[in-house]
Amino acid sequence: MENKIILQTSNLSIGYTSKKEKNSIASNINLSLEKGKLIALIGANGIGKSTLLRTITGIQKPLSGTVFLNKKNIHELDSLTLAQNLSVVLTEKLPPSNLTVWELVALGRQPYTNWIGTLTENDIAKINEAIALTQIEHLASKKHYEISDGQLQIVLISRALAQDTPLIILDEPTTHLDLLHKVALLKLLKKLTQETEKCILFSTHDIDMAIQLSDEMIIMTPENTVQDQPCNLIMKGSFDTLFKDEHIVFDSEKGKFVIS
């Protein structure tokens, strides 16, 4: 397999344009997301994680540089092709509705269904497969407002799986969850990358857990954005530059931050 790269950025510069003025948040970003990898995106609040995610999911245009999804410029892809190659799990609250868990997961098939959204046998098989992979069979017939936040997060991941894309991007999936559910969720993501060969990118503030579970990490600091395996990043001392505070020190032996 010579072509494992799903998404690649070249000299990407992200930020906002307002009235001719370019407001750059981060520049010179070179990432490559490969098949079967669980990749964590970390960085301090306000460093531009969300802007980076918005840019590589094609929602926002980069200031310069290009995002390639399967070697094609993501900002030139039509919305349907994009939806068949990239699915997302967002932090926003779902609007009130009567959707059951099964129906919610089934919505993931929208990029493949006909004009009125009829589910074919293949669609139904994919939906049930996604539900089985995330082990939420017991929730399937419940309304989505009847389940806990942790369960809903997994249901949303299941929906992204049903969308059957080589790349899934999650925006802070572990926020609002307790330790037990954080670990369960990250382990699920790990399992999914191993069993389905998908690439999963997630942003998080749970750095010590990400170090233990992810295959690669992307660290955003005001100076630069680096991508590597967690142990290499520890050796390079990349974590030391993450927070600009003398009281927060990275203990490279324990692999976590300590307060001095």
Binding site: T57, I59, S79, L80, L82, A83, Q84, L86, S87, V88, L90, E92, L94, P95, S97, L99, L104, L107, G108, Q110, P111, T113, W115, I116, G117, Q163
Partner: peptide, 22 residues
Amino acid sequence: LNIKSLNALLLGENYARSMGMN
């Protein structure tokens, strides 16, 4: 003609977009 899009909108604007809706 918009029934499918209306269903997508049940998850909100951003999810609907990510599922290929214009």
